[in-house]
Design a protein around this nucleic acid. Structure first.
Lengths: 214, 214
DNA sequence: CTTTTTGCACTGACCAGTCAGTACAAAAAT
DNA sequence: ATTTTTGTACTGACTGGTCAGTGCAAAAAG
């Protein structure tokens, strides 16, 4: 049946199919609307209108409103995870310590949120909900991101750089939360501040240079 | 308008009116449902049913669904703020340091989340949304809570206990985020852990005892 | 007697999802 | 070279259901 059907459509010069471009537009429209209003309060008509396509096109490209949302989640968290991994690996390659790796990941997180604030907003808003259709997708995808941080913490414990007493999963969650919330606050309430500024404040907190010493 | 309406009805011996009891039931029903499903996905019929009252009673007690929600937010954050303030003041009274005050507030936050997990969930989910009716309520109420933390940080800077270089608002936001996210993760993903356990892990992080030293 | 709650029927706006049809370009047939 | 067919992407009017909010009479509570 629809097997040999794909070739004809890789038309556009950029190598990108028409369909992919439409899906991208729909992602972009959906992410800001859902971040602002929430999933249920956002209508498919709004998404279509903002993307500049007809409502039918949404359903031509996605099976349903929630499938669109689920794929959006996967897509977004994929970007974040890749970026965190890249930061950790780059630090390792350059012979940095685990603290430096953590710091690099904090920065990578901030850069991500700086670039995709709406996605971050939406992610946080949905993460701890229960009884929702995409709950399991969300769990999987969350674990991928947190696992990267846990990995660095464990390596640090192994080589003696971190105390053996730290609780790896909990500390990883707390670190992710710290960055997430601080960054959302930055974007919402003091957007004029620079990324470096925010990064410096979090570094200080991370390295315990808040109380006491230089 | 509705100003002189309150006095007549303080009937019940307990000081609590019939009406207040109904409102309380509605708060409790609404908070769990909205935490699970979100505001828009939760119907007034569901809220009424879970509270065990007729739908008409909801509208007799609240002007609309969103007014119910707004008053719920105010009510909940009021409890949290009071609890944080109490922790900070108790520490001060007992002659504790500012770090100890911070630590006491972390614990107070955890106790609150332990007792009202649904409210916390819902609060986090709504906090960074824009374009919603209760946006301004939320901002006011958030500032009240964060201000308590900022106060302690500022006192610490003033008496030399904290570095002068810390960024008070940002650090306060990061601390709140750390506790919020760690606690939600605790409740969602490892609910068997004890409060003391979680508190110990966060204390360690707070006091920079992750990297290096005892 | 007043306040509060109940139960239930009703309305009208709104919205997810459907479907018959259009546009168009590449391929096949003539 | 031209006509015809086929597959893909998209369109927008329409439908069936849902839900916030109303209206009201009668009962319960105080």
């Amino acid at each position: 049946m629809t097997i040999g059907a794909m070739e004809r459509s890789s038309a556009t010069p950029g190598g990108r199919t028409r369909r992919e471009a439409t899906r991208q537009k729909l992602y972009e429209a959906a992410v800001t609307l859902i971040a602002e209003q929430g999933f249920s309060a956002t209508t498919v008509d709004e998404i279509a209108e903002r993307a500049g396509v007809a409502k039918g096109t949404v359903y031509y490209n996605f099976a349903s409103k929630s499938v669109l949302f689920e794929e959006l989640l996967r897509h977004g968290v994929g970007l974040l995870t890749a970026s965190l991994k890249e930061a950790a690996e780059r630090t390792a390659r350059e012979g940095g310590s685990r603290v430096e790796a953590l710091d690099a990941m904090v920065r990578a997180g901030l850069v991500f949120i700086d670039r995709y604030p709406a996605f971050t907003q939406l992610y946080v808003a949905e993460l701890w909900r229960t009884n929702r259709a995409w709950q399991s997708t969300l769990m999987v995808v969350r674990q991928e991101a947190v696992a990267v941080v846990e990995g660095v913490l464990r390596e640090g414990v192994a080589n003696g750089e971190f105390s053996e007493e730290i609780d790896v999963p909990l500390t990883a969650a707390a670190l992710v939360g710290m960055v997430l919330v601080a960054a959302l606050d930055w974007k919402s309430f003091q957007p004029e501040r620079s990324l470096d500024d925010v990064h410096a404040a979090l570094s200080r907190l991370l390295q315990g240079r808040v109380s006491g010493r230089p």
